[in-house]
Design a protein around this nucleic acid. Structure first.
Lengths: 258, 258
DNA sequence: TAGTAAAAACTGGTATGGTAGATTTGTAAA
DNA sequence: TTTACAAATCTACCATACCAGTTTTTACTA
């Protein structure tokens, strides 16, 4: 089956080299395939199978799996199977909570720090979103949506925060791919409201607008869960990594290396 | 040699099995060694070297490296070396920003949702902190500090958020290990203030108290940077993963499945 | 036919050898 | 002494073989 996409985000590359490894490319490929639901939640596969499909050895596939497991895209069951994590409603709502808290803080910062150039840039992005809607370019629209939020973070000197938001967003993005009707006009209106508040340096209003903008997924998820129950995990299964009771220390074991 | 501990932070274990792999144990060991500065920032080492020291093959060490790289504990330079990431002031301040935004949101939630049992539990933790100070048990004190913040998150139904806070905290914890004088009495007083606000369900006051409590590291880091310049990265080196200008798709990199 | 146990066919985990690229070292020339 | 360049020695990456569990299939028994 010709499942694997060849496009993907630049999540995998090393900062030091413009020369991504095979493991990097496998990671990018699988990441994209999972995000776009080409590999649907709950589907099982094996290192060997993917390796064969991609024409590489098991080793880089295995390393890609490790990284995917760390961002909870897949769940590795030793000696058993590896499967694409189902969408956990709790995890999505948690991601939204985190994103809202962070973006609210970021947009407050932006109100106080940001340059007029940022506002111009944001308006440009929204304008391009209007055009994307006009020609029905859904992918472009979503990329521009990312760019909008990202620009706010970077424009207020919080570029590093975006890295984290982006990770959290991944779980939500799978939901987004499930939803065919995303109501782009409303998104554009909300973006415009955020820009207005930024221009007026109205901190509270900007925060409120951002929180409202990010809250829409709450209504989406319930509907989508109904439509695609097979993609969702059982309700109470939190599926998170438990860090244990107290994070106790381990004894000293490794000598520092020179 | 009898090398790898089987106890320790449960960061590494798989949910499905009580049987951590060698790679899990290597990860835990190295994670702890880096956190406690036994492996100081900037020190270089190799897969083979660590494998030899620990008496295992290179493979599980390599997988541990991958996971450590993902949380920015080490930096893998292909064909060159792997080194413990230096402490980046920008990264620490970023982590503090994220933590403050999240914990502020969490404590607001806690004011509205939390049970009286939580408040009792928090008071118990602070009481144990007092005892820890009395007998000068620094490690225990810090563990209890973690427990305090974690309990608030879990008590308000935001346990998953703690997972993320904990990751961010790691960068800050290395700084904490550098600091011999942590001013425990002030910490205890601030914890008490948070509890008071929680008991009164005073949302804004709780948030303010929490933000104030988390802001102390700002003054710490400048001093520590002076004292231990070799552990810190150059100022402008942000050292974060840059995802590129727009998250545009990358061209086809992997041959599609055969 | 139903139940059960052996065996075959998977799974991911680990060890090891080889490769390409980066760094260091050493040697020879200016 | 300094410089240039080649060889030796690192590095992490990849492929492969093997191992120990798990699951599925198969075949035999009641």
């Amino acid at each position: 089956m010709d499942i694997l996409s060849t496009k993907g985000e630049k999540l995998a590359e090393r900062p030091e080299t413009g020369d991504p490894t095979i493991a990097d490319r496998v990671f990018t490929t699988l990441h994209s395939a999972i995000l776009t639901l080409q590999m649907p939640p709950g589907s099982k596969f094996s290192e060997a199978e993917i390796a064969k499909q991609l024409g590489v050895s098991r080793q880089p596939v295995r390393e890609a799996f490790i990284r995917l497991a760390q961002i909870e895209f897949v769940r590795i069951q030793p000696k058993r199977a590896t499967e694409v994590c189902k969408i956990s409603e709790a995890a999505v709502l948690n991601a939204r909570f985190i994103r809202e808290a962070l973006e609210a803080a970021v947009v407050r910062d932006a109100c106080e720090n940001c340059s007029d150039e940022l506002i111009d840039q944001l308006e440009d992005i929204v304008e391009r979103q209007r055009k994307a809607v006009a020609v029905n370019e859904r992918e472009l629209f979503h990329d521009l949506d990312d760019a909008f939020h990202r620009s706010i973070a970077e424009g207020s000197g919080r570029g590093l925060v975006w890295t984290l938001i982006n990770e959290q967003k991944a779980q939500m993005d799978r939901v987004r791919y499930l939803s065919l009707a995303f109501n782009e006009p409303v998104v554009i209106r909300e973006h415009a409201a955020i820009i207005d508040a930024l221009r007026d340096r109205a901190t509270s209003r900007a925060e409120t607008a951002m929180r409202h903008h990010l809250s829409r997924i709450n209504s989406l998820i319930a509907v989508l869960r109904q439509q695609h129950p097979q993609y969702f995990a059982a309700t109470q299964a939190v599926q998170g990594t438990d860090a244990g009771p107290l994070n106790l220390r381990v004894p000293a074991l490794v000598k520092p290396a020179r």
